[in-house]
Design a protein around this nucleic acid. Structure first.
Lengths: 383, 383
DNA sequence: TTCGTTTTCGAAAACGTTTTCGGTAGTTAT
DNA sequence: ATAACTACCGAAAACGTTTTCGAAAACGAA
C-alpha cells in the first residue's frame, strides 16, 4: 500500500517505531527511514512582505544584483539598476532591517536607559535624543530603570541583546556599582553618560553645572541677605547630589558662613519627603531664612507648605531650586531656579554617541558641561 | 614568480586586467582568473559575542543540539542539556535577538507613535505602555510625529521596517487620511489606537470620555450659574476635539442655552493661541462668564492672563479644563478639570495590543472607554 | 534474533540580506 | 590577431538562530 519515498518499492516497507507522533517506516530495499507527510497546509503568501528574492525572480536576475542596485553599488549597469528600482518601488519593497542588521553587524539603533520617563526633565532629554538620532538615521529604544539598580542592569542586558549600536544612560539613584557598564564597555560598546554620570568609567559624559549651579543659587540667597540657609539635598550616593551639595558648601565657605549639619537633609525622590525636612527645620530653635532645593519639585512642595503655614516667601524664608519647569514660573510666588535645557542635553549626548559609534577607533571620550542659567524670580527676591 | 591558485603552475600566468583595484591574473593552463589576496588583516575575535556555534564547538556537538537545550525542547538528553547550559552560562552566552527574530518571524517589539513625548499626558501613557509591555516580554520602540502627518507616516514605515510585532498609535493633529494605517492593517499588522483614534478603520481603541467629560464640565459651569460659556476647542479635524465640542453643545442644549458661534474658538496646539481666543471674547459686547478649555494647558494660560487683567476667577469668569496635571492643582486659583489617568490608558492599550498579537486570529477589536473623573477646584466654584 | 520501538542527536534548510570572488563578454591598444 | 583591459553580473558564503527530517544506537518483546 505504502511506497518508499525513495525507490518506490512497496513490498520492502516495514514499520519502524514512532517519531514525533507519526508512524515511522523503513524500506529494506534502499535502507531508508521515512514518514508519510500529509499535504502541508496552505501557506498564506498574500500578506508576506516583498523580499529581494521576489524582485530578483520577477526580473529573472540574481538577488545579488538586486542588492547592488538598491544599495547604489557601482558594479552595475545603469539601465539594469533603473529597472530594478522601478520594479522595487512598484512592488513596494521594504528591506528587512533585521536581515540587514544581522548581516552588517549593526542595527542603527541606540539604546537609552533613564530612571523615569514621566519626569519632565527626562522627557525633554528624550526629545532631544530622538531628534538628533533620527536625523543621523538611528532609531531609539528606550528603557526605564524606575530608579532600581537591578532593573537598570536588566535594561542594559536587554538592549545589548537587541544589539544596539550604542548606549545612552543616566543611572538610577540606587546605582553605585557599575559592573554592567564596564562589561559592555570592555566589549567595545559605545556608551555615553548624561546627567547622572559615573566617574569610575571612561565614557563621554554630558553633565549639568551641578556644582556651579548650587554655588550660584546659594550665593544669590546670601546676597539677598540670608544667613541660615538650609539645603534639601538629593540621595546621598548620587554623584550629582554630591556636586550640588558641594556647591552649596563652597558658597557658604566663600562668605564665611558656618556649615550646620542640621540644615542639611537628604531626600530620595520620594513623594512628601521634603515636607519632613521642612518640618524639621521649622522646629529648630533658629529657623532657616533661606532654602536651597537641589530638585525643583521639592521646592514647589515646600512653597505650598510654607504658604499653608502662612510663612512669608521670600521675606521670612527665601527659596530657590535646581531645574526649571513651567510650574516654577506659574506658582506663586514664582520660583528662582538654576536652569539647563533638557532637550539640549539630550541632543548633545546623542550627538556624542553617534560620533562615538561612527568613529569608534578615534573617538576621544570627553566631558561636556552644559551652561546653566540663573533665573531670578519672586521666591528669593527681597527688594 | 606568481603561481596559479588552482593548479600551481607558474609559467602559464598572464595578466588579465584589473578588478576592484587589484591586478587580475589568468592561468592559461586551468583557465582560471584570480587575484593575489594579501594576508587578510587580523580579525579581532576578542570582543565578539559568544554564539551558539562557539558553544557547540567547545563541546564538540552540533549547533542544533545547543539550540534545543537552550530552548528547553524535549528531544534531548537531560545530562547533555545540563552540560550545555553550564557551558553557556560560563561563557556568558546571550542569544542574538536579531537572528532569533529573523528566524522566528517575530521581534517581540512593539512600536509606539505619539505626537510628542514632552507632553506629560503622552509621557504618562508611555510609562503605562512600557510597564505592561515589559511584563509581557516585549520591548518598546518609540517615535514622535511632532504633530506632522508626513512624519507620522515615516514613523510607521520605520517601525514596520524594523518588523515590530504590533503598533500603538495616537495620531498627529494633521492626520486626516489614514492610508498608512489601512495598508499595514491589510498586511495583518496588529494595531491599537489610543486617545487620538481613527474611526475609518477597524482597530481596537482606547479613548477618554471626551464627549462625557466636556458635557460634565459644561454642565458644572451651568450649575454654577454661568450663562455664556465660551469654549477653547482643539483642532477642527481632530476627532477628540469634535467629541469634546459636541459634549459642550449637548450640555448647552440640555439647559436650553443658545449656542453662540462667537464663543467657539479652535486652537491648534500652538503656544499663545488661547490668549487670542481670550482677547476676542473679552472684547465682545457681552463677555462670557465661563470658559471650557478642551486642553488644560490652554486653561492655565488663560488663568494667568485673566489674573493679569484683574478679572476675578471664578466670580466674573469661571474656567474649567480637560486633563489634569500637577500644575492644575497648584495654580491659583486651582483649576477644575475632568481627568483620566494617562498611565492607565497606556497600560490598557498595551494589554490590548499584546492580546491582539498573541491571539491574532481570534482577536476581536473593541472600543474601550476609560472612566474619567470631575475634579472640582477653585476656578469654577462659586460659593 | 528480529522486528517494532524510543531516545538522542546531527545535517541541512530556512529567515532576508550583503559581500566576496570570479566568469563572461566586449573593448582597446599593440 | 592578441594581450591587457573594463563592465557587468551570478554563485555562494556569511550573519546567528530555529526547525525539519532522518540516522544511529539502544532497548524491549516475541
Amino acid at each position: 500500500m505504502i511506497a518508499c519515498t525513495k525507490c518506490g518499492s512497496v513490498e520492502n516497507i516495514v514499520k519502524s517505531g514512532f517519531i514525533r507522533g507519526k508512524q515511522r517506516l523503513f524500506c529494506k530495499a534502499c535502507e531508508v527511514h521515512f514518514t508519510i507527510n500529509l499535504p502541508q497546509k496552505e501557506i498564506n503568501k498574500t500578506a508576506r512582505q516583498i523580499t529581494i528574492v521576489d524582485i530578483a525572480k520577477s526580473l529573472g536576475i540574481s538577488p545579488s544584483t538586486v542588492s547592488r542596485a538598491l544599495n547604489g553599488r557601482s558594479d552595475i549597469n545603469p539601465m539594469t539598476r533603473q529597472e530594478i528600482i522601478r520594479v522595487a518601488t512598484e512592488m513596494d519593497y521594504r528591506p528587512n532591517l533585521l536581515a540587514q542588521s544581522l548581516n552588517r553587524g549593526e542595527t542603527h539603533t541606540i539604546g537609552v536607559v533613564i530612571p523615569n520617563i514621566e519626569r519632565p526633565f527626562f522627557a525633554g532629554v528624550l526629545a532631544g535624543i530622538q531628534k538628533v538620532a533620527t536625523e543621523a538615521g538611528y532609531r531609539v529604544m528606550i528603557c526605564q530603570s524606575n530608579e532600581s539598580h537591578s532593573t537598570e542592569t536588566l535594561n542594559v542586558q536587554a538592549l545589548v541583546a537587541s544589539r544596539v549600536d550604542g548606549l545612552l544612560i543616566s543611572h538610577s539613584k540606587e546605582t553605585t556599582s557599575f559592573d554592567h557598564i564596564k562589561l559592555q564597555l570592555r566589549r567595545g560598546l559605545p556608551i555615553v553618560h548624561f546627567d547622572r554620570v559615573c566617574n569610575e568609567v571612561e565614557t563621554a559624559k554630558v553633565v549639568q553645572e551641578d556644582f556651579e549651579g548650587s554655588f550660584v543659587l546659594t550665593e544669590h540667597l546670601i546676597l539677598q541677605g540670608c544667613k541660615r540657609i538650609a539645603v534639601c539635598a538629593g540621595p546621598r550616593e548620587l554623584l550629582i547630589s554630591i556636586s550640588r551639595l558641594n556647591g552649596y558648601k563652597a558658597a557658604l565657605a566663600k562668605y564665611d558662613i558656618p556649615l550646620r549639619e542640621e540644615l542639611i537633609y537628604h531626600t530620595n525622590f520620594i513623594k512628601g519627603e521634603s515636607l519632613l525636612a521642612l518640618d524639621g527645620w521649622l522646629n529648630l530653635p533658629q529657623k532657616p531664612d533661606g532654602i536651597l532645593a537641589v530638585h525643583y519639585a521639592n521646592a514647589i512642595d515646600m512653597i505650598v507648605e510654607l504658604k499653608k503655614r502662612k510663612i512669608k516667601i521670600p521675606s521670612e524664608i527665601a527659596i530657590v531650586g535646581f531645574g526649571d519647569e513651567l510650574i516654577a514660573s506659574l506658582i506663586e510666588p514664582s520660583l528662582t531656579v538654576f536652569h539647563h535645557s533638557p532637550f539640549q542635553m539630550g541632543a548633545i549626548a546623542a550627538k556624542m554617541l553617534v560620533d562615538n559609534i561612527i568613529h569608534k577607533d578615534t573617538f576621544q571620550p570627553m566631558l561636556q558641561k552644559m551652561n546653566g542659567e540663573l533665573i531670578i524670580r519672586q521666591s528669593s527676591l527681597r527688594k
